[in-house]
Structure formats: structure tokens, C-alpha cells
Write a protein that binds this DNA or RNA. Sequence first.
DNA 1: GAATTGACGTTCT
DNA 2: AAGAACGCCAATT
Length: 108
Amino acid sequence: MKEDNFFEKVYQVARQIPYGRVTSYGAIAKYLGTARSARMVGWAMNGSGAKDVPAHRVVNRVGMLTGKQHFDGTNLMQQLLENEGVKVEDNQIVEFQKHFWDPAKELS
DNA sequence: GAATTGACGTTCT
DNA sequence: AAGAACGCCAATT
């Protein structure tokens, strides 16, 4: 049980993201105490495909679907978000702050 | 083995 | 205030 790796932590938090909610890499990184390592969060998501991590709920601080390119399709990520009630326009989440889900706050 | 890139964000100028 | 540079750590080339 030593999977306290940064990657595992990211997966844990990402899985706890509620339905119709979204979060940013920096938020997770900050929650883990490594706000500056936000890149690692994205890199960790690389293995999200092998995990049950809804990476489509994770976007950058602006709410832009920067990682949509890594999904199977090009509009898959956007489709998933819209399917949850999150409106997306121009690869950017509408009212991102409204759908924003901060683990440090919600999870405390 | 070394250099570069990468789902980002912060900090300095 | 706006823009540019840096830092993080791992993986890929």
C-alpha cells in the first residue's frame, strides 16, 4: 500500500470529482501540496486511460479542454462534459468557475 | 547518458 | 497592467 505516488493521488482525487463538476490540474496539485507541479498532474492523467479516472472533468485553470486532444476522438471530451450538463464552447467550459470543484474546499 | 518535450501554473521583469 | 521566463518531475527521443 505504498502507492502514495503523486500519480496515484491524482487518480484518487479525480475519481472523487462529483457528477457535472469540473476541476483544474492546479487545484489537484495544490491540494496535494505541489501547485507548481501541475504539469505532473496532466502527465499522470496520461495513464488515466488505463484507470477509471474521468479525465474529461479535468481541465486547465482557464477551463479549456487542453487535453481533449489526448482522447480517442477530438470531440469526445466535450461531448462527455455536455452530457453531464457542463456547457462547452470553443473547447472552453462555459461558467467554468460555476462548475469548478475544488478538492481542498469540497473535500476539505 | 544527455537533451527535449509535456493534459500547467506561478513568479519575475 | 501585460508579457516573458522559470519551475516541477517524468517520459520519450
